[in-house]
């Protein structure tokens, strides 16, 4: 494992820790899209089916279990915790799941590496992850007030895939020179979706102002 991949994983992990910290410490999930969080649960459930079929490393298994456990617990807090669920911006979080999930599934049926259940679901999870942030970005744009934890959460979540892109370039040159179009292009799309957010996040940080996205 190279340093970019590790940095990507740690950024991803840190983003989730920040989100859980916000929810648990402030007993609030304002500004967080339940739609996006539910899509991540689907992403992890469909991608990590190989937990049952092959062992890669202790690190790999542990991280997969952590991502599954934390994403499910975030959704649990937002849906069922008696205090947290009242802070959920339901009226503003209107993006439809199937609007993203169905096209991704159809695309995975059409474009995949191998036509097996595990491979198609893995491909679906890659496509879905690329666009799963959209409900969250829409919600942020509608929120007049983005708190620091939410801003940092989205920033780290975007930075993680950007670091993976660097990791893939590095792996291409240092390992087997194999081309992996499905994850590479999806990762590129995923990172590009954050471009606008990154711009306003860095600008607000430089000017020491509160983060606000233009409507």
């Amino acid at each position: 494992m190279n340093v970019f991949r590790l940095a990507g994983d740690m950024t991803h992990l840190l983003s989730i820790i920040i989100l859980l910290l916000k929810i648990r410490a402030t007993k609030s999930c304002t500004g967080i899209s339940l739609k996006t969080q539910e899509l991540y649960v689907i992403v992890f459930l469909t991608r990590y089916l190989d937990l049952f079929t092959k062992y890669i490393s202790f690190y790999n298994t542990t991280m997969k279990l952590v991502f599954l456990g934390t994403s499910i617990s975030i959704v649990w807090y937002m849906r069922y915790h008696k205090v947290v669920k009242q802070t959920y911006n339901k009226d503003q979080d209107t993006f439809r799941h199937y609007f993203l999930a169905i096209p991704c599934f159809l695309l995975a049926l059409l474009i995949h590496h191998e036509f097996t259940v595990i491979e198609v679901l893995w491909t679906f999870s890659i496509y879905l992850e690329a666009v799963a942030i959209l409900p969250q970005l829409v919600l942020l744009q509608r929120s007049r007030n983005i708190d620091n934890l939410t801003g940092n959460y989205v920033f780290l979540l975007g930075a993680y895939r950007a670091l993976y892109l660097v990791n893939w370039v590095y792996r291409y040159f240092t390992e087997n020179h194999l081309v992996r179009w499905i994850p590479w292009l999806s990762g590129l799309v995923q990172t590009t979706l954050y471009a606008d957010f990154f711009y306003y996040y860095i600008k607000s940080w430089k000017n020491n102002e509160k983060l606000q996205l233009p409507a």
């Binding site: 994983d9 991803h12 890669i56 792996r171 390992e175 992996r180 994850p183």
Partner: peptide, 10 residues
């Protein structure tokens, strides 16, 4: 051949 070397990623 391994279907994808990125399968060891998360």
């Amino acid at each position: 051949e391994e279907p994808s070397s990125v399968k060891d990623e998360l």
